[in-house]
Amino acid sequence: MNPLLEAEQAVLGAVLLAPGQLRQLGWLAPEHFHRPVHQALFAAMRKLHADRHPASTAENSAPLSWVTDAVEEAGLHVRGLTASHAHALISACPRPGHAPVYGRMVLEGAIHRSVTAHAIRLHQAARADALQGEVEGALRCADVLRDVLNDLARRWGTEPRPVAPVTPSAPGPVTPPPSWASQVAEDEQILLGVLAERPTSMDEVVGWLRPDDFAAPARGEVYRCLGALHHRGEPIDRITLLWEAQRRGLLADGTLSSDQLAAICDGVGPGSAEWLGEQVMRSSVTRTAAASSRAIRALAENEALAPGRLINQALHALAPLDEVRTRWQSANDRPAPTPPAPSPNGPPSAQVHAALARSAPRPVSPPSAPPGSSPSPAAVRPPSRGHG
């Protein structure tokens, strides 16, 4: 059986047996459960507990009314839940005192699912923006993803901070739709022609446009050559551009050819370098958003990656998009959003509470334990944290 499914059943069975366990599961939410019926049942028990159900303060084992009332409340929101199902969940719980550990497993699965879902939304938004010539949808999805990662870090009990993977994976190139690719190639080609023909136009774009913003690496290298000539204050024309490309080894390794450079220099038409640069930047934003989403999805689908590492490495994968976004906003004279400053007093108390609640569960002693008896080692041994 799926370990995650067993963990969901175990934590629900633990709360059905001992409602007081809910006091140690404040960081666990109904949406963290994968199955809708489990979500409804956990939400129902939280509601009954908040409404001070008589069983929530029971010293001994929970009365039968706790189970029947929880099933009845959950049945208002989901179909197919019966009392026999609830008793099956109780049977699936090895030890009610381990409820925080089972809840940690449920939360871990929810973190992987949530990050995967939001990475997919970011990729879809980037593709849609690319086709429509926009960037706002992808940037909004990136903001939502970052907020989700910060929230998950708080629930997991860690401080969100970008951390590079130990063995970074190189995602494959993002393949743009044909209609988008042709327009991007045309804009890049015209922009390079304008910059080669009117070198003073470099001042309009050099502050925020980078070679990596070009979809084709060869055109990015041409822009790098133009930038080098501009930086040294040397004249720019077809001959000097060809010479700079040769000095950089671009002709020898086949990155560029003299015919390509001639086509760029001779194919210039009317156009604004600033406007064309913004078009190149726009496509760079959507391509980078798609690449970041693919990297984050690959991280989230790695079940062996601990949640803390997943969250921090996903934040690191968003860094290239943040860098391109800052330059895009600079090109459009928009202030970049200010990231939240870390707390000078360490992680918030909610994070500390979540970490301690997961890592040091208090086992529920049997109500009829004989005096002087010692608890079993499994009941008192705290689980390993396993945080990333």
Rank of each mutant, 00 (worst) to 15 (best):
Q9T: 08
V11N: 11
A14F: 10
G20Q: 15
P30N: 08
H32Y: 10
K47I: 07
K47M: 07
L48C: 04
H49E: 13
R52M: 11
P54C: 12
P54D: 11
A58W: 01
E59R: 13
E59W: 08
S61C: 11
W66Q: 08
T68K: 03
V71P: 01
G75T: 13
T82G: 15
H87L: 14
A88P: 06
L89H: 04
S91Q: 10
A92D: 07
A92K: 00
R95V: 14
P100I: 14
V101L: 12
V101D: 05
Y102C: 05
R104M: 06
G109C: 10
A110H: 12
A110L: 06
V115Y: 02
T116E: 12
H118K: 07
L122V: 10
H123C: 02
H123V: 02
Q124S: 12
A126C: 07
R127K: 08
L131G: 08
G137D: 12
A138N: 09
A142K: 09
G157L: 06
T158I: 15
P160E: 09
R161L: 14
A164W: 06
A164I: 12
V166F: 04
S169K: 09
P176S: 13
P177H: 05
W180T: 15
Q183P: 03
Q183C: 01
L191P: 01
L191K: 00
R198D: 11
R198S: 07
S201A: 15
D203W: 06
G207L: 15
L209D: 13
P211Y: 05
D212S: 14
D212I: 12
A215Q: 14
P217G: 03
A218W: 00
R224E: 03
C225P: 05
L226R: 04
G227R: 09
H231I: 01
P235V: 05
W243A: 10
E244F: 03
D259W: 03
L261M: 04
A262I: 13
G267V: 09
G269E: 06
G271W: 03
Q279S: 01
V285Q: 00
A289I: 02
A291P: 02
A295I: 02
L305T: 00
I311R: 02
A314K: 01
E323S: 07
P335F: 06
A336Y: 06
A341D: 07
G346A: 01
P347M: 14
H353W: 09
H353E: 13
A354I: 04
L356A: 13
L356G: 05
G372T: 10
S374G: 08
P377A: 13
A379H: 00
S384H: 10
